[in-house]
Amino acid sequence: MDFSNATTYIKVKDHSVSGEEFELLLDADLELLKTHPQPAPGKLGRYYESDDYISHTDGKRSLFEKIYHTVKQKALRDKIKLIQNFQPQKGKLLDIGAGTGDLLAVAKANGWDIAGIEPNDKAKKIAESKGVVFMEGLEAIADESYDVITMWHVLEHVPDVDAQISELKRIIKPDGVIIIAVPNYRSYDAQYYGEFWAAYDVPRHLWHFSKTAIEKLFARQGIKLIKVLPMKFDSFYVSLLSEKYKNGKMNFVKGFLTGWKSNRKASRNMEYSSHIYVMKIAKN
């Protein structure tokens, strides 16, 4: 992707770890934002060194974490239901960025042949205690191996999106399903919080997607978008964190109201805080 002619969309800080400031550059044709500068791969790990990075822990220390993990249980059931709606025949499921392995553990209990990919050793160790099996990387996977591939809030962390999409196309079966979930910077809560919007999460999030960006990026590699679905809880979760970044503390009432307003507006314009994209290889 060529961002040589991109314009600055907004400047944002890393609110959770380093306090450093980054630009988000806009590719107007793709409606895609790029974090600039992007840390070198060898230096990116230090930006994840926080006990507050919830996807890498099963911790329930604070009220916020307890709420997160309670809601997560319903979200897991909904994800399995979604997967099986689009791929009724249970087969091989790969979850890229599996975190602490909860989705794969539930999928395994529901009869799926599961595997995960997760770069964080701490999260991987927790997942392995739940019976999750890991692949070392996509390059070790044979062509047309999986019936379903999922990436839940992972694509925004990937340095080379085009190469990642190419690998997804290589390892998915011809009739398989690819499910991607990412934040949506065009949502109301993103516009409301601006530089304090927690889902920018720079520099861990290297890319920031719109619906147009996802559809175009996958289409140019022969993958067709067949369904866009909302992740309604994300507006509340992100708004609560954004309140903390903006005002120094979590205002549960204001965060909840902003999340509710974001979902209400999205019910009309279909711009939710996060979206789930369901895709298949296009038929010639």
Rank of each mutant, 00 (worst) to 15 (best):
I126S: 09
E144C: 05
P119Y: 02
I149F: 00
D121L: 07
K122C: 00
V132I: 15
G137Q: 11
I141K: 03
D143Y: 06
S129I: 00
E128C: 08
D121H: 05
P119M: 03
T150L: 06
I141Q: 00
E144Y: 04
I149E: 04
M151R: 05
K125F: 02
M135H: 15
Y146H: 10
I126T: 12
S129M: 13
K124H: 04
A142T: 09
V148S: 05
E128M: 14
D147N: 15
V148A: 06
E118T: 02
V132H: 11
D121E: 08
G131P: 13
L138H: 07
Y146R: 06
K122G: 10
T150S: 11
Y146T: 04
K122F: 08
A142Y: 01
K124V: 06
L138A: 05
E128H: 00
E139I: 02
A127V: 10
E139D: 14
I149W: 01
I149A: 04
V148M: 03
K130E: 13
A123M: 09
V133Q: 14
V133N: 15
A142V: 06
N120Y: 03
A142D: 09
D143R: 09
A127Q: 07
V133A: 15
A140W: 04
K130A: 15
T150Q: 04
F134D: 02
D121N: 01
G131M: 11
S129Q: 15
G137C: 08
E128S: 13
E136F: 00
A142Q: 10
V132C: 12
E118V: 04
A140Q: 12
A123P: 08
E136I: 04
Y146W: 14
N120W: 01
L138I: 09
G137R: 11
Y146M: 11
V133P: 00
K122N: 12
T150E: 05
K122P: 00
F134H: 03
K124G: 09
A140S: 13
Y146V: 03
M151N: 04
E118M: 02
K130L: 14
I126F: 09
E118H: 06
V132P: 12
P119C: 00
A123E: 04
K124A: 14
V148N: 01
E136K: 12
K122M: 07
S129L: 14
I149P: 02
A127S: 10
N120H: 06
M135G: 06
D143S: 14
E144H: 08
E118G: 02
T150F: 06
V148R: 07
K124P: 05
M151I: 07
K130Q: 15
E144R: 08
S129K: 15
V133D: 13
E136V: 04
E118S: 02
N120I: 01
V133G: 00
L138K: 09
A123S: 11
D121Q: 05
D147R: 04
V132N: 10
K122I: 11
V148L: 06
K124E: 10
Y146C: 08
E118P: 00
F134S: 04
A123L: 09
K130C: 14
S145K: 07
A123D: 01
K122L: 11
D143F: 04
I141C: 11
G137F: 08
G137T: 07
M151C: 09
D143V: 02
I141G: 08
N120G: 02
K125L: 10
V133I: 15
V132D: 10
N120M: 01
